[in-house]
Structures are given as C-alpha cells and as structure tokens.
C-alpha cells in the first residue's frame, strides 16, 4: 500500500434533505488516515454544504457544518468549488465558510483551502484523478 493515489470526493447534494453529504464527510475523514492525495469538489447543490451560517434548529438535524473546518487538520487542503454552480444559485465565495489549513512547510501559515474553479478547470483536475467517489 505504498503507492499514493489521487482521491477526489465529489459532493453534489445539499447538506440536508438527504444523508449523502454527511456520509461523504465520514468517508473523507476515515480516508484521511490512508495518506493519499485527497481533494474535494463541490458542484451543483453540493456548494450549499460549505455555506456560511447554517442553522438546522428548525429541522431537528445535527448541524455538521463545523466538520468542514476541521478538514485542514486532517491534511485535506484542496477544496474545489465550481464557479458555475455558485453563480446558478446566486452565491459567491463570500457566502462560503472560511476554510483554511496550516502549511507546516511555510511557518504554519494559514492558507485558504477553497479553490474557485470553472467547470472546464474542474474537469481537468478530475481527469487527473485515480479514484473519483461521487456523493
């Protein structure tokens, strides 16, 4: 198991309404222990998963949005967000949580994890992956 593969988790669904987002995050967290090259993509309603100010009080579900903020500590530092999906929903990067990671090779400087990409750019990143898991 010494070979390092590129794993991409593609998040396509809203955080609540179905369990895909929550259970996808569980795979990401377990997968982080395997020392692979990990990235996440947020497309379609998946962009809602990392929106600011989520409040689940009214629906009686666990608000798990803070888990995304811990991804940096699991060395999951590449979060691709598709620009077209944001625009189609009237959102901008300012509507998203501030997600960062600490670069230990750069004096632990906090760096942004979110990478805003076009659909075409995301397709290129995706084509470069070894394993793509879609949720």
């Amino acid at each position: 198991m010494s070979e390092i593969k590129k794993f991409m988790y593609v998040n396509r669904k809203a955080p609540y309404g179905t369990v895909y987002a929550l259970e996808s995050l569980e795979v990401v967290l377990i997968g982080a222990a395997f020392d692979q090259d990990v990235s996440l993509a947020f497309v379609d309603d998946g962009v809602y998963q990392i929106m600011n100010g989520q409040n689940t009080t009214g629906i009686g579900m666990k608000n798990f949005s803070s888990t995304y903020k811990a991804l940096g500590d699991y060395e999951v530092t590449k979060l691709y967000v598709e620009k077209e999906s944001l625009e189609a929903r009237g959102l901008t990067v300012d509507d998203l949580m501030e997600l960062t990671w600490e670069d230990e090779d750069d004096d632990y400087e906090e760096k942004p994890s979110i990478r805003l990409v076009s659909s075409a750019e995301l397709a290129e990143v995706m084509a470069d992956q070894d394993v793509v898991l879609s949720f």
Binding site: M1, E3, I30, G31, F34, Q36, V131, L133
Partner: peptide
Amino acid sequence: LGQLIEGGIQADRLVV
C-alpha cells in the same frame, strides 16, 4: 469505511 478506501487503492478502477 477503511475497506472502501483500501478498495480504491488496490483496484485499477473504483466504480460507484
């Protein structure tokens, strides 16, 4: 879930 990740590492293709 580790079994899924291992499956991704060991196989040539993971099909979802």
